[in-house]
């Protein structure tokens, strides 16, 4: 893995923070006048600053939402690395985390716990069914063509996710 070359662990004053064209008092053998206000160190952090384009408000709202997403993901999956060290390599697990993140971080509407649980169950069942079908009969293909039949509980799964009944095309 490439290590970052420009990473530093020591804070350095930002370029341009030093006064330009004015010699330092110490260089001229003068002591700092007590009446002269001290130059304050510029505090640097990565938090967004007040901007005219409203960036701070937008990013704060986004951060707050992401914090909630992190809490939900932690509660749903537990401490990833400690309790499930190998889970993150599985596609189903990745799909689940990814979809939940996308759903929670981008949807403006509130997502209820019930909806979240339903989504998790549907995905988990889907992955389990896929894994089972791969394991038992790999040769058998399960494609639903125009005249094919959908699983019995498909309508219920759609209802759980979307809150509406599924109507198969006539």
């Amino acid at each position: 893995m490439n290590r970052p070359s420009s990473t530093s662990v020591v804070d350095t004053p930002p370029a341009g923070s030093l006064p330009v064209g004015k010699p330092f008092p110490i260089a001229q053998g003068k002591r700092r006048n007590a009446k002269t206000p001290k130059r304050r160190k510029e505090i640097t952090n990565s938090s967004p600053r007040e901007t005219k384009d409203g960036w701070q408000e937008r990013v704060q709202a986004h951060r707050k939402r992401q914090e909630s997403v992190a809490k939900i993901l932690n509660r749903t999956f537990g401490r990833f690395a400690k309790s499930n060290p190998d889970l993150w390599e599985r596609r189903a697990y990745l799909m689940m985390v990814g979809l939940m993140y996308q759903w929670l971080a981008t949807n403006e509407k509130e997502v209820s716990t019930e909806e979240l649980v339903a989504l998790s169950k549907v995905l988990a069942e889907q992955r389990r069914a896929e894994a089972q079908s791969r394991g038992s009969d790999e040769k058998e293909t399960e494609t639903v063509g125009p005249g094919g039949e959908l699983p019995e509980d498909f309508g219920e799964a759609v209802k759980q996710v979307y809150g509406t009944n599924f109507q198969a095309p006539a």
């Binding site: 937008r58 990013v59 986004h62 951060r63 992401q66 997403v69 992190a70 993901l73 999956f77 990833f80 690395a81 993150w88 697990y93 990745l94 985390v97 990814g98 979809l99 993140y101 996308q102 971080a105 981008t106």
Partner: peptide, 26 residues
């Protein structure tokens, strides 16, 4: 923001398409 999004799900991962969708908010 890319790093922040990936931090939320660490040590899991996100697809680049999911990253794009979440960044479109900002």
């Amino acid at each position: 923001e890319l790093l922040v999004a990936l931090k939320v799900v660490y040590p899991a991962a996100l697809q680049s398409d999911q990253l794009l969708r979440s960044l479109l908010v900002l």
